[in-house]
Write a protein that binds this DNA or RNA. Structure first.
Lengths: 303, 303
DNA sequence: ATATTTCTTTGACTTTAGTCAAAGGAGTCG
DNA sequence: CGACTCCTTTGACTAAAGTCAAAGAAATAT
């Protein structure tokens, strides 16, 4: 299966705007940043130092920064020789190396932060207070949409690791949020969301699953949307809506004429979203302890 | 003399927003771009190729890209050996080298453009049409404010080269725009905008003068603001307003209780700006052929 | 016309960044 | 226990990026 999203052709002016911005930004700001941040230190080392944070294993850093093992090993050694980091062997797995900042290393990172702050401050001082606020809003919007754009939604098997991870997180979320708790046996079973029976989608941001949604057969011709969940870090991006769209497309492809779903009374934003997406409230079609509102949408595109 | 702008302290949340964005953008988008753009070619060469455009001298490129002379010379030779550029000697100064793209070089640059377009398109396809529009607006706002933030306004001598360049551009602008034309002898004389008599400000973007404004003594205690001009490429950023603010601060520092200015009937945006900045329309205080509206502002901060 | 400056080229380097493969010690799984 | 996998280290490279200084040819300033 491939992604099922269909979308309008991208307008040239939007492409041009993005490219113009990209060019301006990398030339003017990004370059500055790298230059000031590194100062005396090679950029690679500076970046590594920065990424260590409160300690990490070389293995993690290698994955995160996409570095060659040998290259990283040597950089770590170089930083150790400069007294900026400490390399230790974790007792639970002596193959690994933990790397953490020494006091000197922490001072260096803080100096990096100070410089970056000074750079940002220098830029902002020339703006008036309302302009700064406007900029902050525009940056937030830009970042939100770029993040959303970089997230891909793909159909996955309900039994796949990513799917289970999302469902577990979903269950834990619900369980923590509602006094009724959440009974894990109430989750969809993999076979309910596979092939003819239904569908399961996972959204990925930089390779990590950050949202999911399930579609299963409620009765012939009627689908049920369940477990629409978004990782806390990825909320307020408009991701739930995208998952919903995918699920509806899948529902149409499964020849469902109608999809239904239920939601909890306290999730008012979710309810607002469903309404905005064309759902109408209906009487209870099923009884879950944690459900208190039921919605339905008639699908136009069923074949 | 130093810049006279006084401004509110920068709020930490604005600094944080800018840094967060910077980090996200350079990591996610900027990096991608470089990687795809270069492809088989060293990044340095790819960038150089891109910057040549419709031809340039090595001297220009050296300044623009901040490259070492030797390094650039060698890269140019490498590109020439690959048949992508042609190096010629301009007749008017045989020390210089002009570099221009050959057909093959142009094809290569176009390929770069295509790849960058494809990259941008790929990002944008996952967004809905309204989201794309929203992104484009947010990008435009961000870029406008970042540009504005990166522009510095400095007092310069009225006889300085940059000042004269701005005034010449101003005069040419007016001359082209109004049927009455513009008589250059009507420009302020350097001594009118120096020291006790007045002030002259030039705004710089990446080292180039992009706007100016003059303050001169009209009569004791009364200043006159003249020649507020913004380069066509730097309009709609809010730069005129910034120049105006600088001029008013200078006027206050010169103990002017009042500043006046005149403007042409057709410059309705300018008039709106003056009104928004606290100017009120007054009867003619002087007669320039091209003036048809006169404004005045009483300054609070005169010492 | 002479001195000074400007611009490019060349030689001789160094540093940074990165790759690849071999090797060896530690876990893990059957 | 043995095979296999994982993680790091080390050696041996290469390519890219960049620096510095000397030198030569042309323009420009005095």
């Amino acid at each position: 299966m491939e992604p099922v999203t269909e979308s309008a052709p991208v307008r040239p002016e939007d492409i041009a705007a993005l490219r113009r911005f990209n060019r301006y930004f990398t030339r003017r700001i990004g370059a500055l940043d790298d230059h000031y941040l590194g100062q005396d230190r090679p950029l690679g080392e500076a970046r590594l130092l920065f990424e260590i944070g409160d300690g990490a294993s070389l293995r993690e850093l290698r994955a995160r920064l996409a570095l060659d093992a040998g290259y990283l090993s040597r950089m770590a050694k170089a930083l150790e020789a400069q007294g900026l980091v400490r390399l230790t062997v974790p007792p639970h797995d002596t193959r690994l190396r933990l790397i953490e900042l020494t006091a000197a290393g922490r001072a260096e990172v803080e100096e990096q932060h100070r410089r970056a702050d000074a750079l940002a401050t220098g830029l902002l001082t020339t703006l008036t207070a309302p302009q700064r606020t406007e900029l902050t809003h525009a940056l937030a919007t830009t970042q939100r949409l770029l993040r959303l754009a970089a997230i891909t939604v793909a159909p996955v098997d309900g039994a796949a690791e990513d799917a289970r991870a999302c469902l577990d997180a979903y269950a834990a979320d619900i369980d923590a949020r509602f006094p009724e708790g959440f009974d894990k046996t109430d989750l969809v079973r993999p076979e309910e969301v596979t092939g003819e029976a239904g569908a399961f989608f996972v959204a990925y941001e930089e390779g990590r699953p950050v949202a999911c949604g399930a579609l299963r057969t409620l009765e012939p011709g009627v689908g049920e949307i369940r477990h629409v969940w978004v990782h806390p870090d990825a909320r307020r991006l408009g991701l739930a809506r995208r998952i919903l769209t995918e699920l509806e497309l899948a529902a149409a492809a499964h020849d469902f004429a109608v999809v239904r779903l239920d939601t909890h009374a306290t999730l008012t934003e979710a309810q607002a979203m469903y309404r905005a997406c064309g759902y109408t409230e209906i009487p209870a079609y099923v009884d879950h302890v944690y459900a208190s509102h039921w919605f339905e949408k008639r699908l136009a595109g069923a074949r």
